[in-house]
Design a binder for these strands. Structure first.
Lengths: 147, 147
DNA sequence: TATTGTTATACTCTATAACTATA
DNA sequence: TATAGTTATAGAGTATAACAATA
């Protein structure tokens, strides 16, 4: 799928297609922006969750990220290999790992957030501030999030 | 990625994540709905485009669908194998094929459209009519479509 | 030489199930 | 017996580049 042009009619007339197309487009653009940092979107998600709750176990990250356990292993393997996060022994249970960001991981997450913001501005450029807020509200409602 | 629950915070706070999550969710639901018809979303797209302009060449479908040429070959192979579309000789150029829906293809497309509408109603159920129209307008604007 | 369609192939991403070590 | 994490493996889906036939 290419995203360098608007989707063609008659497909673009369908609400569902539009939502799907825009969603895949922003994913692809974000993934491309993350590439220079050596990250893919799931890495960003996991880094974000570790920062939000340092010391989380892999199981907790699985629950909060909707990523399956085996994928979580490889994502964290990669984060450790690139020195962005580390597994430490869990104080209460020798089966568990406690996950923490490294200093470098924190910095990389900051840069990844800048990428997210840049991608966001590019994609949402056609909308003014009011429209963006409306879209955000509608998308949250669509996702089943109560405000 | 799982879609049976709303996306977790803090991820759900990000506009981009919300758009991407909803987009992937509706794709996944539509794909699931199409399964009993033996179709995947790209088949639906190609059927739609052939119906919109019968006699299209594969190259034209590639241009209008944003699917790459080699994927187009397998999609059309599958549509022919299941008797939904057919390649005919192109009157002007022996390199080209002219694509047509079969009667069965037309019926299947109708049923696939019903699946699309059903998926759409499910996903957009949390929104009222005005909100849906607003969302449609914003998504078209986002996609770069001039109204 | 360029274009249409095709094939062969490789790659990315994810999911499934079986395994280990601990509880 | 159940849980945390891991491994091995297979699968879906897509993309890339080389190719034959025709223009």
């Amino acid at each position: 799928m290419r995203f360098d042009r608007p989707p063609p009619e008659p497909l673009a007339s369908a609400h569902g297609f539009l939502l799907s197309w825009n969603g895949h487009r922003i994913s692809a653009m974000f993934a491309e922006g993350l590439e220079p940092l050596g990250l893919r979107p799931p890495h960003f998600g996991v880094l974000t969750l570790i920062e939000a709750k340092p010391g989380s176990t892999q199981q907790e990250l699985v629950d909060r990220s909707q990523v399956d356990p085996s994928s979580m292993v490889s994502i964290i393997d990669e984060l450790e290999a690139t020195g962005l996060a580390e597994r430490r022994d869990h104080p209460d249970d020798r089966r568990k790992h406690a996950l923490y960001l490294t200093a470098r991981g924190g910095k990389t997450l900051t840069r990844a957030r800048e990428v997210a913001i840049k991608t966001f501005s590019e994609v949402f450029a056609p909308l003014d501030a009011d429209e963006r807020e409306t879209l955000r509200r509608l998308l949250r409602k669509l996702a089943g999030i109560d405000d």
